[in-house]
Nucleic acid binder design. Sequence first.
DNA 1: TAGATTGTTAATCGATTAACAATC
DNA 2: TAGATTGTTAATCGATTAACAATC
Lengths: 217, 217
Amino acid sequence: MGKSMSIKPVSDNVIRRLPKYLRKLNEMLDANVRRTSSFVIADVLGLTASQVRQDLNCFGEFGHQGYGYDVSTLKEGIEDILGMNRGFNAIMVGVGNIGHSLADNFCFSDWGVKLIGIFDVDKKLIGTKVNGIEIYDVGTIVDFIAENRVDMAVLCIPKRGAKEMAALLAENGIEAIWNFTNEDLFEPYNQSIVENVHFSDSLLRLSYRLTERNDNK
Amino acid sequence: MGKSMSIKPVSDNVIRRLPKYLRKLNEMLDANVRRTSSFVIADVLGLTASQVRQDLNCFGEFGHQGYGYDVSTLKEGIEDILGMNRGFNAIMVGVGNIGHSLADNFCFSDWGVKLIGIFDVDKKLIGTKVNGIEIYDVGTIVDFIAENRVDMAVLCIPKRGAKEMAALLAENGIEAIWNFTNEDLFEPYNQSIVENVHFSDSLLRLSYRLTERNDNK
DNA sequence: TAGATTGTTAATCGATTAACAATC
DNA sequence: TAGATTGTTAATCGATTAACAATC
């Protein structure tokens, strides 16, 4: 951990695979599997052993020659790489249907993130709680950010206000936005890192593949 | 449309970009922009014009030399490619928090998919409706599939039952599964196409990038 | 030790970018 | 026509795969 001399940035493809490794390692631990290898990992994820080793070696040496990988050690290594031990705090902005569903059901703490506040415009919601987390007036959000460590914002407001809110959050020092809005947020909200979640993209990929298959038979 | 002699499969990277093109084309239409070019599209999406032209040329010729692309024609072309005009029907299995949120808020019809039924085990829910769609006993799902055209299943049940349900659906002819379960479904449920949605993967990518940035300053 | 599997370099493959003739 | 922009081929770049010496 803490290899700060990151020479060349790790490719996005590699980053996308890390959570999948983590999921499988957790499953192995649950099944009391202590030891694994690049071959086994590759097999369960549909990759090649070479690729698994290349991926991991972007971040250092996690294995032992002739032995393989200790599941627990590798899991912890990947958790560190992904920032799960940084104590990130998040706020949610907008608690309509999707926001409410996330606040209620998505286990942020499983991924090292703590949801410390929810903001909305709806007066009826303000002062109530979802899953133990208080809902505040969105008008107080700037003060809240000033007074608390807030690393991420989970954006769940309607599309039309998204750009403006992203800009406001960025101005006030929020560096990461998890965007469930249907507005594509690129990084003009400057410095901020944005992860756009588009359910429709996912559905359309499925639709494409089904169409392609139907046509080929 | 309908080029059935698909020679080499189009790469996944290309498919992932198609919904993004579509989103921008829709925005252009909303703004009464009738005509565009690979340069403009590339610019708004952070790609290169070359890449846009290469992507589109996987599927035929959509533009006019010296002119560019007619927004409306291109949009319709991409909709066709993605299968949005195939009249796909979907059922939802499991209507807990995430399922309910999707049924209520995600506009399936915007993407050419019709949600025709919801299935759950909870007796209290059976017979009620969400967003006008009836909730049926999951025990009747095989009959329902036999009696209706069902192209896709939106899987929103708890993780533990996911593999079994995927197998059941596949056995009964469902070829596409949109999987919101936390279980990774690969394609052993044979022939079925699976699109796994993992919120945590998305959050962890954000966490990674934030961590990386924090370390580099 | 012999067998196994890593870390890492080299080879291959595929995707992106550049270039440009075709043509609207 | 001159200017613009496509469709498409060629060049470059990067990611995946293969190979193997190091070593547990």
